[in-house]
């Protein structure tokens, strides 16, 4: 399997006043195309920071991040923004949908960054909503939907532009078991049937079991736990 992502000797430090806090000192990892990784670890271990680095919303202090052979750590702000629009879908714990837009409009947002025609966009939105099983909620506003439904809209938004990578930060952290399992099932389906590479941060061991492998992040290092597929 080819690697989609390659982190090499990544260092990430924050300076708070005079104090330097190192989150990672020499973090390296490979993420093959089509992988589904669950990242677990204690609070403050740097899971969110890692997702931000992978998604290009944050910058490494030192080291390299390659995506599909391209060095994203070398990109400028504008290049990184475009790269994100084309290659990464984000799913947050609290959905982060636009309250003023309907489900369909929320899903359409990333397509405003493409050259697709109006009709093509509508078609893609429909497909994405179909995949997450929410075709019948297209015209609903977020506040008219349950948490699980909102998260599925967020997943549709994340996949509508057909990115290779999905980054999920505790996507089920705010959902009950049954709803969480439905959402996780959807992610699994995206991984298995559509070949999306998924990196998911979770505190929930049951959620992590939906992934192909689990990485434990602690004190800036990984311990891998293989799961039977």
């Amino acid at each position: 399997m080819t690697d989609l992502i390659r982190l090499t000797d990544v260092e990430k430090t924050y300076t708070r006043g005079k104090e330097k806090i190192a989150i990672f000192e020499r973090l390296s990892m490979h993420i093959p195309q089509g992988d589904f990784i669950a990242i677990m670890g204690p609070s403050g271990s740097g899971k969110t920071t890692l997702l931000n680095l992978l998604g290009g919303t944050d910058r490494v202090t030192r080291g390299q991040i390659e995506f599909d052979g391209k060095r994203i750590d070398k990109m400028n702000e504008g290049q990184l923004t475009n790269w994100r629009a084309q290659n990464v879908g984000f799913i947050f714990q609290f959905y982060n949908l636009m309250p003023i837009l309907t489900a369909a409009q929320n899903v359409e947002l990333p397509l405003l960054l493409t050259n697709l025609s109006q009709s093509k966009r509508r078609e893609n939105v429909k497909t994405a909503l179909n995949i997450v099983g929410l075709s019948d909620r297209a015209r609903h506003k977020p506040r008219e939907m349950s948490g699980g439904q909102q998260q599925r809209v967020a997943i549709a938004r994340a996949i509508v532009a057909d990115p290779k990578l999905l980054l999920c930060d505790e996507p089920t952290g705010d959902l009950d078991r049954t709803t969480a399992d439905e959402v996780l099932g959807t992610l699994q389906l995206l991984n298995r049937d559509l070949g999306k590479t998924i990196v998911m941060v979770t505190h929930d061991a049951a959620a992590a079991k939906f992934a192909k492998r689990i990485l434990h992040l602690d004190k800036g290092h990984f311990n891998e736990q293989e799961l039977a597929a």
Partner: peptide
């Protein structure tokens, strides 16, 4: 929401 838009790839 501005943060989300930027995350999705809307330029500053």
């Amino acid at each position: 929401e501005v943060g989300v838009l930027k995350t999705l790839g809307f330029s500053s």
